[in-house]
């Protein structure tokens, strides 16, 4: 099959002052594409051709190519990860497109995700959010018996639904406001339903939301575009849970001046 690709080419990394840099959409015609190629194999095929013609290959992120690492995430025709629901870019195949199709490839567009080159964006903002509280603190020592803490099946499933997040950033890319609330909501929900998440529950909600706000993401307006593009099909339920958790944690927060009985010792 034959495809006409419109690809965002940007040689210099985005800065706060100049986000688009020299970036522009460039058209490439590609023939002899097999419909059994994955989308990334099609790009490999294009890059091979570009390299042989003495042009710079198109930079794009990828790693596992089996839909679990969260590295890939090209915005294809305005949809992060492309037209197939619940699928990462690497798991998308050219049979999802018609012969002769015009396909638009763009990087994820968000102030918090500066473009490094072409289709590659810097998603460190997600790492900083995770470092702010998307974890549980565990004492070192001998591992505990796996079944020592009972978890109800419903709770385990809710936690697991949130834990399937691969941090690809598609939710931010799809959101009309470039909000990261599905991602951060997933981190809150992941621990909320588990007994291990309880001791740090309030602090986690406060710190995650504060870290998210600091990165310059937008705000959720409940349009649910994130849910529609999430390759792991995480529900906006996690956003509702995050809203609830943040408000609860803020209400329970004691003023910094508050002295506890017995002092700090």
């Amino acid at each position: 099959m034959k495809v006409k690709l419109h690809i965002w080419r940007q040689s210099k990394a985005s800065t706060a002052q100049n986000f688009a840099q020299d970036g522009k959409m460039v058209v490439y015609e590609l023939d002899n594409v097999s419909k059994d190629m994955s989308f990334l194999e099609m790009l490999d095929f294009l890059n091979d051709k570009l390299t042989r013609e003495g042009e710079l290959p198109v930079a794009f992120d990828h790693d596992c190519r089996e839909g679990v690492c969260g590295s890939c995430g090209i915005v294809i025709d305005g949809i992060p990860h492309g037209p197939q629901r619940g699928t990462t870019t690497c798991q998308l195949h050219m049979r999802s497109f018609k012969d002769g199709a015009e396909i638009y490839l763009e990087p994820m567009r968000a102030k918090a995700f500066p473009v490094l080159k072409d289709l590659v964006v810097n998603r460190s903002a997600f790492d900083r959010v995770v470092q702010a509280g998307a974890f549980i603190s565990v004492s070192t020592g001998a591992p505990k018996d796996a079944n020592a803490i009972l978890v109800a099946k419903d709770a385990a499933e809710k936690a697991f639904d949130a834990a399937t997040c691969i941090g690809c950033g598609a939710c931010v890319a799809a959101c009309k406001n470039a909000s990261a609330m599905l991602f951060v909501g997933a981190k809150v929900s992941h621990f909320l339903h588990l007994p291990q998440g309880q001791p740090e529950r309030d602090r986690r909600a406060r710190n995650l939301v504060t870290a998210m706000d600091k990165e310059g993401f937008g705000n959720c307006t409940n349009q649910n575009e994130c849910e529609a593009v999430c390759p792991k099909e995480i529900s906006v339920r996690v956003i509702a849970e995050m809203n609830r958790e943040f408000v609860r944690a803020k209400l329970r927060e004691e003023p910094p001046s508050h002295k506890r009985v017995g002092g700090d010792g």
């Binding site: 419109h6 986000f19 638009y104 799809a174 909000s179 937008g218 349009q223 649910n224 529609a228």
Partner: peptide, 29 residues
Amino acid sequence: RLSRSNRSARPVQYAKSATLQASFASRSM
């Protein structure tokens, strides 16, 4: 305040944008 912060969260717009399930009402708030 929220709309301004939403605008600034995406400095470069998509050349081709798509809407999957956002309602007309939600997009015209």
